[in-house]
Structures are given as C-alpha cells and as structure tokens.
C-alpha cells in the first residue's frame, strides 16, 4: 500500500490568489476522478505584508490606494478583476467589506487547528471569513468563535491565542519559506520534490499529481 502524496502549501490568509489556488488544487485532484492518488495536504504560514496595520479602519480600496499611491478608480478596477477570477473558481469575494489586518493570529489558529486534526477546515473557514464575510482574522474573540464552529475547544483556543502557544511555529514556517527562497504565495511542494508557484490552473495540479504518482509506481515496480 502506498502512502498519500504529501502536498505542503505555503499560504497567507490575506491572499486572494491563495484561496483561488486552493480551489484550483481541489479541482485538479477531483478531475482525476477514481484515478486520483490519495493526498495529504499541510498548510504552512506565510505573512505577505508584515507592515499591515493591526486594525485599519477604512476600505480595502482606500488602503491599497494609499499604500500603493494609485487612484481609487484604478484599484477598484483591479479588485473587480480578481473578484471575477475568484468567481470563476466558485468563490465570492467582497472587497468592500474586507477588513485589512495582520494575519499572524489567524496563522496561530491554523496551527492549533492542525494539532486538532482540522487544519484544512480552518484554512477554508478563515479564507471565507476574510474574503466573503469581512471577518477580522486578528481578533481573538472572532478566532475563538471559528474554532468552536469547527468543534475545537473554545477555552483552549483562547488560551493558545492569548499565550502565543503557536507563535514560534508560525515563525518557523515563515523562516522555512525564506530558506527555500519562496517569495510569493501560494506555493505548493509535492512530495518534497516538485514546486509549483501560484494559483495555476487545475490541469497543472492534475499533471503534477499524475507525474508524482507515476514516478512512485515506477519506483515500486
């Protein structure tokens, strides 16, 4: 019996392409149907914009316009573009309600969820909260609520987040990405052998999985 193909993914929460890439990977696996190899997915933390304020009290458009020195209208056009790409992937982005914030606490919650065997569900929950629901992924009260939604003990989640129990694990993930030279996310590593950068089309993920699976069969033969 072969073990699952390991897929390590470096990703942020405040990362529109990361959510789209998640869907494309899922679609790439699903497209293989009964031939799809078993996979084991593990998410790793990455902070795209460490200088993001903890609580920016304006719209995404205003923040980006100010941060990048671009006219509001131009930022709006670009956000409309990615909203359209997301929609094609079956995702609903509402940039008008996105709450810009640092994501480190959210990443700590992802590590707690991993310890509880629920990392994939939590990744999905936090991305949806951020891009669709206007959730604040830095606020402990909201994070605890999402933990409880997934059946994780709320008191334990609160203690973990308040004490920074997983802060070192988050930084270790970020350091690992730096050591690999990863500058952009999402970044996928298949079985420790093949790297894929970006939310590539589902077919790319299907092909990589088939290649890795084929190589394993060749080795086993």
């Amino acid at each position: 019996m072969t073990s699952p193909i390991k897929i390590d993914i470096w990703s942020d929460i405040a990362c529109p392409w990361c959510y789209i890439g998640k869907r494309h990977l899922e679609a790439g696996i699903a497209a293989l149907g009964d031939d799809a190899p078993e996979v084991e997915i593990e998410y790793h933390s990455f902070e795209l914009s460490p200088d993001t304020p903890l609580d920016f009290e304006g719209s995404t458009t205003e923040y980006l316009s100010k941060a990048k020195g671009l006219p509001l209208e131009r930022v709006e056009q670009m956000l409309e573009h990615v909203t359209g790409v997301a929609s094609q992937a079956g995702l609903e982005y509402h940039f008008e309600s996105v709450a810009h914030t640092k994501t480190l606490k959210g990443h700590e919650l992802l590590h707690l969820a991993k310890a509880n065997g629920k990392q994939l569900e939590m990744k999905e929950r936090l991305l949806k909260a951020y891009f669709t629901e206007g959730g604040r992924v830095n606020r402990i009260d909201e994070l605890v609520g999402w933990a409880e939604e997934l059946g994780i003990d709320g008191a334990d989640a609160r203690e973990a987040l308040e004490s920074g129990r997983y802060a070192d694990d988050v930084q270790a993930d970020i350091a690992q990405a730096r050591a690999y030279g990863i500058q952009g996310v999402p970044f996928f590593v298949f079985e420790g052998r093949y790297g894929v950068s970006g939310a590539q089309p589902a077919e790319v993920f299907s092909q990589v999985l088939q290649q890795v699976d084929g190589e394993r069969e060749g080795t086993a033969a």
Binding site: D12, A14, C15, P16, W17, C18, I20, G21, L48, S49, D51, Y63, L64, A67, K68, L70, V75, M78, L79, H81, V82, V85, Q183, G184, V185, P186, F187, V196, S197, G198, A199, Q200, P201, V204
Partner: peptide, 17 residues
C-alpha cells in the same frame, strides 16, 4: 505554470496581478 500573475508577492499581492 501558466503565469506569474497568479501568485502574490509581498505587498504587491494586495493588488492582485
């Protein structure tokens, strides 16, 4: 893959593509 535009890199990611 097909395009570098499908990844976020630093603060620029916040304006996708």
């Amino acid at each position: 893959g097909a395009s570098d535009e499908l990844a976020c890199e630093g603060d620029a990611c916040l304006i996708p593509g």
